[in-house]
Design a protein around this nucleic acid. Structure first.
Lengths: 185, 185
DNA sequence: CCAGAATGAGACACAATTGTCTCATTCGAT
DNA sequence: ATCGAATGAGACAATTGTGTCTCATTCTGG
C-alpha cells in the first residue's frame, strides 16, 4: 500500500525526467495502478500541484532553517557565508524538488504557488545582494544572475545524481565548493 | 512568409518555456497558422526532431570551431584554457539550443540524435579530464560533474536572458568567469 | 480467520490534440 | 496587373490521454 508521500516521491522523480508523461506511464513508473493514482489525486493538475506545494514547502523550510532572512539584513560576512553554505547544502539534498518547481511551467499557472515562488526567489536574490555587500560574493555580476546560477547548479545536481556521477553522500560539499570557488584549479 | 529557420527559432524559444505545449499554441506563439506549421513539419515529432538536429549541429560546430578535440589530447594548459573559454562563450550564445537538447526527453527516443548527443557529451567530459590533467580545472571533483555543471550554467543563462537579468552582449564573459572562478569574491 | 479498506485491471465516456483537407485570401515575383 | 505559391481559418476524422466507474482480488488490522 503506497502512502501519499511515496506517490509524490515517485511522481516527482519520473516527472523530472519526463515532464509530459501520461498518467498511465506515471502510475506504471511509480508502481501503482492508474486508478489508484486517481483516487489519491482527482486530476493530473491536482497531482502536479501537490508536488509543487510540497516542494515549495521544502524550499520555504530551507530558507527558514538556514537563516536566510536574517542573513539578508546582516553585515557580518561570516553569518552570510554560513547561511549560503547551509542553504546550498539543503537545496542539494532537495535538488529534485527545487529543480522541479523551477522547470515545470504549470507552476506559474497557480496563483498561490506562483506567489510563493516569486517570494522565495526574491529572498534568494536579497541574499545574493547581502553576499555582495559583505564581500562574500563577487559584485561584478548581477545579484539576480547569481540566483539563476543556484538554480542551474541544482539542475546539474539532479542530472549528475541521476547519472550516478555524484555520490549523494558527498554531493552537498561538492556543490557548495563548486558554486563558491568555480571549476578552475 | 516565414522561413524554416524562423519557424524553428520561434518553436525553440516557446518550447524552452512550455515543453508540453500544443501545436495550436506553438503556432500562435510563432505567429503562423497551425496548418502552415504542419505544412513545414508533418508531425509534432518531426518539428521537435528538426529543432534537435539543428541544435545538435550547432553543438557539433561549437566543438569543432573551438578546438575541443585537439585540446582533449593537449598537455598545454594554455591550449586547454583557451578552448574552454571559447567553448563556453559559444555555448552561451547558443544557450537555448544547448539547454533544449539536454532537457527535452524526446531526444533520447531518436537513436540518431541520442548517439550524437552521447558522443558530444563524451568529448566534453574528455575536455574536463584534459583540464584536470593540465591543471586548468580542479581535480577534487569528478570530471563528469564539471560537464553537468556546464549544462546547468547554460540553463541558468537561458533563464537569466529570458528574465532580462543578463545582457546578451556581456553574457559570454559573465558565464566564462562564473564557471571558472565561481560566485565568491 | 474475518471484514472492511485498498488495489489493479479493464471498460467506457469525454476532452483535447493531432493530422488532414478545402477554400478564400494574401503574398511575392514577373 | 497577373499568376502561381503560400497562407490562415475552419471543419472533420482519428488518436491519445483523462476522468469515472465496476468488480474481483489483495491487503491490513483486529
Amino acid at each position: 500500500m503506497a502512502t501519499r508521500d511515496q506517490l509524490l516521491d515517485g511522481a516527482l522523480h519520473h516527472l523530472n525526467a519526463h515532464p509530459a508523461t501520461s498518467m498511465s506511464e506515471l502510475a506504471a513508473a511509480i508502481g501503482v495502478g492508474r486508478a489508484t493514482l486517481h483516487r489519491h489525486f482527482a486530476t493530473r493538475a491536482d497531482l502536479v500541484r501537490a508536488i509543487g506545494e510540497r516542494s515549495m514547502e521544502r524550499w520555504e523550510t530551507t530558507q527558514a532553517t538556514t537563516g536566510v532572512r536574517e542573513a539578508t539584513v546582516s553585515d557580518d560576512a561570516d553569518v552570510v557565508r554560513e547561511c549560503l553554505r547551509g542553504m546550498l547544502a539543503a537545496l542539494t539534498r532537495d535538488a529534485e524538488d527545487f529543480a522541479f518547481v523551477l522547470t515545470d511551467d504549470s507552476m506559474i499557472e497557480d496563483a498561490g504557488l506562483l506567489a510563493r515562488m516569486t517570494a522565495l526567489q526574491a529572498v534568494e536574490v536579497e541574499l545574493m545582494v547581502a553576499g555582495q555587500r559583505t564581500g562574500v560574493l563577487r559584485s561584478d555580476v548581477p545579484a539576480a544572475w547569481l540566483s539563476h546560477l543556484v538554480y542551474g547548479v541544482m539542475v546539474s545536481v539532479r542530472e549528475a545524481l541521476r547519472a550516478g556521477d555524484l555520490a549523494p553522500r558527498t554531493a552537498a560539499d561538492v556543490v557548495v565548493s563548486t558554486f563558491l570557488s568555480g571549476a578552475s584549479a
